[in-house]
Amino acid sequence: MKKLSLTLLTMTGLLSSAQADLTVFAAASTSDALEEIARDFESKTQQKIRFSFAGSSLLGRQIEAGARVDLFLSADNVPIERLEKQGAIKAADHRTLLGNTLVVIASGDGKTLTSPSELRTRGRIATGDPETVPVGRYAKKWLEGEKLWAELGKQIVPMLDVRAALSAMASGAIKIGIVYDSDARSNSHVHVIYRVPSEKTGIIYPVAAFTPAGRQFLQFLLTESARSTFERLGFVVPR
């Protein structure tokens, strides 16, 4: 029973990895940065990268199910831990690549928050599904720490991934969102109205390489030019 659903899950992963030198699964929030870095990598190494950007949980499950992948950049530790438990990767194969900041954003003329509790009066909030999508998990963790989750949980509109949360806001139906700083910067329709202090969320992006080709790309992600790209797009790069 489990096999069947996993097989179905894998199909998407397998189909997208055909005809490429390198297959990278990465959290939706990293798509802009990775695509920019990949252009650089491709021109330097003549290797072609095929990306699959989605919610980290879904990607993790596809890898569990046997998707052939060289590198996996997850937006939190949960999928990586699962993979380690399954024996798909060893502790030595993964490390923390990036950090990020959680921000509250508003579309239109939404006013700055002086305190998170003001969210109670701001209507529905688009973010990732708190059960499965890292940005939603971080948002829940933060709001629980602020003792606001019991109330605000009802206002949450859970989306498939962080980019879907942004498009929900672009439609104008939802005015408030909780996303990563990096995503807020990539979108001109929204502006940041609150920055969550990083010690309250502890957002990390672990990366795991599965093959020599994957390790080669990982080395490239650690170069100074890649790091500065990540930083420019709003990520925190541990020094």
Binding site: M1, K2, S5, L6, L9, G55, S57, L58, R61, R82, D129, E131, T132
Partner: peptide, 13 residues
């Protein structure tokens, strides 16, 4: 879909 993502295959089934 949400159950599958969250790894709860039995519930999904």
């Amino acid at each position: 879909f949400q159950h599958i993502e969250a790894g709860r295959d039995a519930a999904a089934m």
